[in-house]
Simulated assay, not measured.
Amino acid sequence: MNVKTENFSNGFTPDINKVAAEMMQPGKLILRLLDSALEFVTNLLARMLGSSLVRQHFHLMLSGLVLFGPLLSFWVSKYNVFANSNHYLYRKFLKSTWGWTCIFTGSFILLLSLSARHSLSLSLRNLSRIGVVGLLWQVFQLLLTLLEDAAGACYEPVSPAQVTLSSASAGLQPLLLHDDRTKASCLKANMVWRGYEASQDVLILCLCCLLLVEELSVFGPHLAYVKPLQRRPGAPLRFLFLLCVIILVVWMFLLLCLLSHFPKFPSQQLGGALGYLGWRGLYQGWYRLRPSWGCPGLPGQGLLTSMDTDKQPQQH
């Protein structure tokens, strides 16, 4: 029995191992091809986002889109699938723009910081930039809600029985004023709100787009820094970078859809202006100060020692 077992193991085990090795070869080839494709695409995107052309002129392109995007409403079809406000993209992404941006950008910053310096304190300091932008977004929401409630009024449409003959013949739609309601309670009661407002959707989309470009632009210098050290960024970091770029494209597309299919002048332009001012005050103002626990610093500061971030193109 032992002899048969020994002959079986000596005769068939090598064959089984050989077959298993041959079956694994196509899988390894596919993984190598995917890794090469990921490296090529991320290198190309990192070079593009890290270029001075994008960093210096992206905010101008975004401003032009917000200003002239509503003109596209003359050419887009009202029967387009994105002309429906209940579309999947609007329902699943538009109301959670900051959540998606915070998750993907925060993960990218954390992994990049840990892979570059292995310092938890430095990683937390870089992550604090996302926290500051989140706090700014909450302040914007609170202030805009207060201003909308103060500058608007709630109206209740008059029933047909209450419409006088003269107003009906003139084609008028009388409204009853309700001064004791906020915008939220007015809309919840299915009444009409009229007043001045700033588009919070356009505000957060513009702010997130500018934030993503700022945070992702450091990946190109990071690749240039680790190349002489013979240290290739891992696939998880590259994959997170790619996901962040995809999110950036989705936000740009959503912004274009809002401006072209649901133009609201000047509400959307005011929201875009507030998003731009928020980015300008943080990334072009406060973050340019000396990095410390009172100031997170610009993206990349403290991560690239041989390439001082002051020498990186940061002028906008």
Rank of each mutant, 00 (worst) to 15 (best):
N2K: 01
V3S: 07
V3Q: 14
K4L: 15
F8E: 03
N10W: 06
N10Q: 11
F12D: 05
F12M: 03
F12R: 06
D15H: 12
N17R: 10
K18Y: 06
V19F: 11
E22Q: 15
M24E: 15
M24I: 04
Q25D: 11
Q25C: 02
G27P: 00
K28A: 11
I30K: 07
L34W: 07
A37P: 03
F40K: 13
V41A: 07
V41D: 01
M48T: 14
M48W: 12
L49V: 03
G50P: 02
S51T: 08
S52L: 11
Q56N: 12
H57V: 08
H57L: 11
F58D: 04
L60S: 08
F74Q: 12
W75Y: 15
V76Q: 06
K78N: 15
K78S: 13
Y79V: 08
A83M: 01
N86H: 13
Y88Q: 07
L89Y: 02
L94N: 12
T97I: 11
G99V: 07
W100A: 10
T101D: 04
I103F: 10
G106D: 02
L110P: 02
L110N: 09
R117H: 08
R117D: 08
L120S: 00
S121W: 04
L122F: 05
L122Y: 09
L124Y: 00
L127K: 03
S128W: 04
R129Y: 06
G134F: 09
F140L: 09
Q141W: 11
T145N: 11
L146W: 12
L146C: 00
L147D: 09
E148L: 05
E148S: 14
D149S: 04
A150K: 05
A153G: 15
C154S: 05
Y155F: 13
E156A: 05
P157C: 08
V158I: 08
Q162Y: 01
Q162L: 12
V163Q: 09
S167P: 00
G171Y: 00
Q173Y: 02
L175I: 09
L177A: 08
L177S: 07
K183W: 00
C186Q: 06
L187T: 01
W193Y: 11
R194L: 10
S199F: 03
Q200T: 14
V202I: 13
L203E: 05
L207T: 14
L212A: 12
V213C: 01
V213L: 01
V213W: 07
L216M: 13
S217Q: 01
V218T: 05
A224V: 10
A224R: 14
Y225I: 04
K227I: 07
P228Q: 00
L229I: 01
Q230C: 09
R232I: 11
G234C: 07
P236N: 00
R238K: 13
L243Y: 08
L243T: 01
W251L: 14
M252I: 14
M252G: 15
L254M: 13
C257K: 10
L259G: 03
H261Y: 13
K264M: 11
P266E: 02
P266H: 06
S267I: 07
Q268L: 02
A273F: 13
L274G: 05
R280P: 03
G281N: 04
Y283W: 06
Q284Y: 02
Y287S: 05
P291Q: 02
W293C: 08
C295P: 07
P296S: 08
G297S: 00
L303W: 04
L303Q: 02
L304P: 03
S306F: 09
P313F: 14
Q315H: 12
Q315D: 13
H316D: 14
H316R: 15
